[in-house]
Amino acid sequence: MSNATDESLLSAEFLARLEQLELVSRKILTGRFKGDRLSKRKGTSVEFADYKNYVVGDDLRFLDWNLFARLDRLFIKLFQEEEDLHFSILIDNSISMDFGTPTKLHYAKQVAAALAFVGLVNLDRVALYVFNSDIAAELSPLRGRRSVWRMMNFLQDIKPAGAGNLSKAMKTFVLKSSGRGIVVLLTDFMDKAGFEEPLRYLVARQMDVYAIQILSQEEIEPDLKGDLRLIDIEDNDVAEVTVSAALIRRYKQNLAAFRAALQEYCNRRGICYIFTSTQQPFDQLVLTYLRQRGLVR
């Protein structure tokens, strides 16, 4: 893991390819600043949206004088507001993420860097959150290309720490972030408390949630033999196993069931669930899978 942080998270060629991408939200979201995107809010852009009856107090500048001439009634022209996108990336840095080659955390950081880069280039408001038992660190929303180095530095500095508590972290995040927008959750979902509650927090705020589950190869295809005392790296919970073919089989079945349950939960709530292994090239993930799933365009 230590080596992974030293490497630059993103290569120059990859960045060049990322520049052509932009983040897409399936929902029309509101932003604080006027940005490149159409907002649900009616505003001052040139894109016409609708008319409404004039009521006292409305801005007279938006009266449609042509219509008043024809119909002798006062209508206010409504314009679609163009605004920026709230793009939050949540990175799980609990110790359990410090596993695999490359580590899950490193992989998560790479994905986060790529997505954040895309967001910054497209003048979205990109916020980064690092969490384990709670939100551990955050990078206040950044905009514009010149913030890329700050985002990179922030990512580089993330170290694995603490036991994970997804639920609490999500709760805190939801309370902190007022605006809606795209939320990308990078975690392994290996939380004994379950995944339902944290996802519910996000869904409740009508965020456009992308749940990316990252697992290492060791978790997907465990290569264990003999009589083992498995120690949970986070809570020191012990599981004594005598590894047998049946046990391995059972483990894989359980993993598949777990993934299936997660997927189903996400699908039902409009969350986009993406499963990836650290063995899968992350650029491929960003350039291919996320594109297919509509996160980037």
Binding site: S96, M97, F99, K104, D188, M190, D191, K192, S216, E218, E219, L224, G226, D227, L228, R229, L230, I231, D232, I233, E234, D237, V238, A239, E240, V241, A246, L247, R250, Y251, Q253, N254, L255, F258
Partner: peptide, 23 residues
């Protein structure tokens, strides 16, 4: 005493425990 069990750290015993319980 199962003294001979080798200790091994895993990211999570979550799935293992479940598997043991199943078995």
């Amino acid at each position: 005493l199962k003294l001979k069990r080798r200790a091994l750290h895993v990211p999570s015993t979550f799935l293992w425990k479940k598997s043991i319980e199943d078995l």
